[in-house]
C-alpha cells in the first residue's frame, strides 16, 4: 500500500470517521432492550390486572429522580467529547459522568430494596421477574459503563472518549424509553 494511503487511513482512524463497529455495538444493545421491552408490553397485555396491581408497588419518584441523574451524567459525557474542551476539562467531565452513573446505581438499589419482596408473588404474574430482568440488565450496563468512563478519564484519548460517550448516551436513550413503559404504561 502506498505510504500516502496509509497516512490517509491512519488519519481517518484517528479522526474516528469509521464508526461502523461502534454502531453495531449500539444496535446490539438497542435490539436486546427492544426485545425485552416488547416482551414486557406483550406480557402486560396478557396479565392486565396483575401488572396494574404490581405497578402500585413501584417507586416512581425515585425512578424519576434517576432520570434526571442519568440525563445530567449524559450531559457531562457530551461535554467531554466537545471538541473545544481542554484535556483536563474533558477528564473531569468524564469523572463527573461516572460518579453520576454510580449515583444512579445507588438510587436504583435503594429502589430495589422496597420491591424485591414482591418478586415471585403469583398475584403479580410475571411483572416483577420482567421488571428486575429489564432494569437489572440496564443497571449492569450503567455500572460497567461508569467504570469504563473512569478508566478512559485516566487513560484519556479522544477516540476512546467518543466511543464510551456514545455508548453512555445509548444507555440514556434506553432508560428514556424504558421509564414510561415500565413505570407508567
Amino acid at each position: 500500500m502506498e505510504a500516502a494511503t496509509l497516512v490517509t487511513h491512519a488519519a481517518e482512524e484517528a479522526d474516528g470517521s469509521d464508526d461502523f463497529l461502534l454502531w453495531i455495538l449500539v444496535w446490539s444493545e438497542l435490539a436486546a432492550f427492544g426485545l425485552l421491552l416488547g416482551a414486557f408490553l406483550v406480557a402486560g397485555a396478557m396479565q392486565i390486572d396483575q401488572f396494574a396491581a404490581a405497578r402500585v408497588h413501584l417507586n416512581t419518584s425515585l425512578a424519576a429522580i434517576n432520570t434526571g441523574v442519568l440525563l445530567t451524567s449524559g450531559w457531562q459525557a457530551a461535554l467531554a467529547t466537545s471538541a473545544n474542551a481542554s484535556r483536563d476539562r474533558a477528564r473531569w467531565a468524564l469523572i463527573r459522568a461516572a460518579l453520576l452513573g454510580f449515583l444512579f446505581a445507588a438510587i436504583k438499589i435503594a429502589e430495589y430494596s422496597g420491591e424485591i419482596g414482591f418478586a415471585g408473588d403469583d398475584a403479580y404474574g410475571v411483572f416483577f421477574e420482567l421488571y428486575f430482568l429489564l432494569t437489572g440488565f440496564h443497571l449492569m450496563h450503567v455500572v460497567f459503563g461508569a467504570f469504563v468512563l473512569l478508566v478512559v478519564s485516566v487513560r484519556f484519548a479522544p477516540a476512546n472518549t467518543h466511543l464510551i460517550a456514545t455508548l453512555w448516551h445509548t444507555f440514556d436513550l434506553i432508560w428514556i424509553v424504558m421509564f414510561p413503559i415500565v413505570y407508567l404504561v
Binding site: 479522526d15 470517521s17 424519576a64 432520570t67 440525563l71 466537545s82 471538541a83 479522544p158 477516540a159 414510561p180
Partner: peptide, 28 residues
C-alpha cells in the same frame, strides 16, 4: 468523528436543561 458541534458546549447545556424540563412535563 461524529463529535458534538465544536463550538457549542452552550448548546449541550441548553439540550440538558430542555431534557430536564421535558422530564418534569412528563411527570406532570
Amino acid at each position: 468523528m461524529s463529535s458534538v458541534d465544536p463550538s457549542n458546549p452552550r448548546r449541550l447545556t441548553f439540550a440538558w436543561l430542555a431534557l430536564l424540563a421535558l422530564s418534569g412535563a412528563s411527570a406532570f
